[in-house]
Design a protein around this nucleic acid. Structure first.
Ligand SMILES: [Mn+2]
Ligand SMILES: [Mn+2]
Ligand SMILES: [Mn+2]
Ligand SMILES: [Mn+2]
Lengths: 227, 227
DNA sequence: TGCCAAAATTAGGGGTGCCTAAATTTAATT
DNA sequence: AATTAAATTTAGGCACCCCTAATTTTGGCA
């Protein structure tokens, strides 16, 4: 069983397209032109053009007017970028004093410039972590990724204790707010109260009790902890 | 006294052109089109085109058929790249187990992708070194660089002891050969004998005595050590 | 069923950065 | 002073990747 070979050199643009389409395809449906354009901050017409070229190269499957999906080759390339991005974020936080709200921007550029060898050296220095600072899973070098299913804090019943596992936002201001309030992966959290109709949630952490809007609570993914 | 502002975003190509022209101008004479093309592995016609654009942007001074020189702005941008390159090489050797023959290639790509902030974090982690693993001086963040004058080992008189300070090659096979024979910056070297007409040189290091071809000896830059 | 708005594509264009082939300039040689 | 070889530039072209404006397709709704 051999690996499908990846096109030898992909450009930064192509790598970002593949990553974006990977993310948008996670829901199951093909990615739409406008969706991709919005995620990459491009005009839809530009996306149509790139999608056409990448389809010809065998990285995408494109059904005009319907949407785009990654081929096996495209998915391998996308997962390679996801690994790079998350290893880089982890390394910057662990060894270069970056905070978790600042790493994304740096990794977004470096992911296209580092060699495979450097990524593996960083991974080794980190002890081959399985998740990044945000709790996002890190694909293995072969493209395998274990994606666990978590429950948003907003859906945890009152009275239950859980462990915070993953924070689902890239917005720096929110990440800083979470960190300041001890809401980081690994934290033990108990839901103390909840207001109805999408109202705020009261939680207790090791740092004390606090209120949390429903939107923010929806970004905090949890696993059932000690009962 | 304020800093001359640099064009906000230079491309990878432009940054490599500026670095190349900086290197070629060190001898004092303007850099020639063919020289630049050879260093960057491009066709001369391509260089002419780029040189024209960079001159219009105020990064170069170009006299057609005569040669190119950096403007003050261009030199600042070039020295910024030199700093990035050498800090990266230093960091990779110090913290990620790279050998000095492998760092150049990695740094050549990363120098265009890292932020100023990351470079300064790496410099801090390294203790703000003044030279890189090859003994090449590292410009300060403001573009200042102290370039010491050394003597090639090939010109050191028989019987004199010197300290090896700088190794002037980027070729991996030569760098590996030097490292295997203890010929690295900081090494104490004594010239034991020399054959005439560009013949080999016999040197003694802490590792013993060895012969060295004149070409290689010319790459090893030395400072007068203990007599 | 026909219309409409959103989504997507096509058409046309620009900047970058490279190429090859042909012309031009320069400097050295006879 | 004419010749010639090397260096350089010009001319023309192509791939990439983005844009705006115009057009086409689609799916939902009256
Ligand atoms: Mn990116
Ligand atoms: Mn992350
Ligand atoms: Mn470079
Ligand atoms: Mn170096």
């Amino acid at each position: 069983m051999s690996h499908t070979p990846l096109p030898s050199t992909l450009t930064r643009s192509v790598e970002d397209y593949l990553k974006a389409i990977y993310r948008l395809s996670l829901g199951g449906a093909p990615a739409g032109t406008t969706e991709i354009a919005h995620l990459l901050d491009l005009a839809p017409a530009s996306v149509t053009g790139m999608v056409k070229r990448l389809s010809e190269q065998g990285l995408l499957e494109h059904v005009p007017y319907k949407g785009v999906e990654l081929t096996a080759v495209g998915r391998r390339a996308a997962l390679r970028m996801v690994r790079r991005h998350r290893i880089l974020e982890s390394y910057l936080v662990a060894f270069l004093d970056y905070t978790w709200d600042a790493v994304h921007e740096e990794a977004e550029r470096l992911e296209h410039a580092v060699s495979d060898g450097l990524i593996e050296r960083m991974a080794t220095a980190l002890g081959n972590p399985s998740v990044d600072p945000h709790g996002d899973p890190i694909p293995a070098p072969d493209g395998t990724m274990v994606e666990l299913v978590y429950t948003p804090l907003s859906e945890i019943p009152v009275g239950q204790s859980v462990e915070l596992r993953r924070v689902e936002t890239g917005q720096a201001d929110r990440l800083r707010y979470f960190a300041e309030h001890g809401l980081v992966p690994g934290a033990a959290v108990m839901v103390v109260a909840r207001q109805p109709f999408g109202g705020p949630i009261a939680v207790r952490t090791s740092g004390g009790e606090q209120l949390l809007g429903a939107e923010l609570a929806g970004l905090l993914l949890c696993a059932a902890g000690a009962p």
